[in-house]
Design a protein around this nucleic acid. Structure first.
Length: 275
DNA sequence: GGCATTTGACCGGT
DNA sequence: ACCGGTCAAATGCC
């Protein structure tokens, strides 16, 4: 949508995202089989939906009866997936849903019994192009309206990442304050990221983030055990919905040639290495 | 013009 | 039968 990316903004986003990824690295046990809960502070903001922004929608979804025929994959197996709790970013008087760096497309919203807030269903934007089946469900906790519980399901099979490039060249200052204040359910008072972060100019799901192809990150495999994480994400620059292919290739090359077993650790610990 | 979002309906599992 | 999850048309925004 708007323009290219601003470097500063880029940096900020990356920091936020990297933090998120760190968190995931740490906080995902067995991905699908077991659900792991982690308390995190806002990711980046923008990736998800705008809870506050849903009001006037034409809403039409009127489907001629009998127009739908095939609805194959409809399974209730929500036993798999990683659950992550994230503090909503509060910019001004509105809360922003967490952004994990991926680009998601909202495909549904449902009122859940027992929950005051509706649950939103997202799916990787690249599904159409890469058949990426990554999905996530975002729901606000009735306990903490400013906390989102995000459940990630599926893997990102899409290859659209500029993360490696950005990260390696940016020498992350990742403070990784992620799980530090798990004592504060509502971390409004302390959300360094949130406060430090300027209100993301990017309205919604399309935002700059970071993402690594799963293949290059055995570390964060869904069932990888400790270091699994549902998504450590791909990112893409807004404006080019899928113009990231070349970049992805580049990233791929870098990862493949640079470090064979490339893990996030390697990436994050780069800054102070050979210097 | 294209894409993302919204929203009601439908389907399938429990 | 109930409820959660997904689909797909309509609309809005960029």
């Amino acid at each position: 949508m708007g323009g290219m990316l601003d470097l500063r903004q880029l940096g900020l986003e990356i920091q936020a995202t990297s933090v998120a990824m760190r968190m995931m690295e740490i906080g995902s046990g067995s991905g699908c089989s077991g659900t792991v809960e982690r308390n995190v502070e806002g990711f980046g903001g923008g990736g998800g939906e705008a809870p506050t922004a849903m009001e006037g929608s034409p809403g039409s979804g009127k489907r001629p009866a009998g127009s739908l025929t095939q609805r194959s994959s409809r399974r209730r197996r929500d036993t798999d997936g990683t659950i992550v709790r994230v503090q909503a970013l509060r910019t001004g008087n509105m809360e922003l849903p967490p952004d994990d760096g991926y680009t998601w497309r909202k495909y549904g919203q449902k009122d859940i019994l027992g929950s005051r807030f509706p649950r939103s269903y997202y799916r990787c934007t690249h599904k159409s192009y890469y058949g990426c089946e990554a999905k996530k469900q975002v729901q606000r906790l009735d306990d903490d309206p400013y906390t989102y519980e995000i459940k990630y399901c599926g893997n990102h099979s899409c290859h659209t990442s500029i993360a490696p490039l950005l990260i390696s060249s940016m020498a992350p200052t990742t403070t990784t304050t992620t799980t530090t204040n798990s004592n504060n359910p509502v971390g409004e008072a302390q959300m360094p990221e949130a406060t430090a972060l300027p209100p993301s100019p990017l309205p919604t799901s399309t935002q700059l983030g970071i993402w690594f192809p799963r293949e290059t990150l055995p570390l964060i495999a869904p069932h990888g055990g400790e270091g699994s994480s549902t998504q450590a994400g791909p990112s893409q620059l807004q404006g080019g919905r899928d113009g990231d292919c070349p970049v992805a290739d580049l990233a791929d090359v870098m990862f493949n040639s640079g470090s064979s077993g490339s893990s996030m650790d390697a990436i994050f610990s780069q800054p102070n290495q050979d210097n």
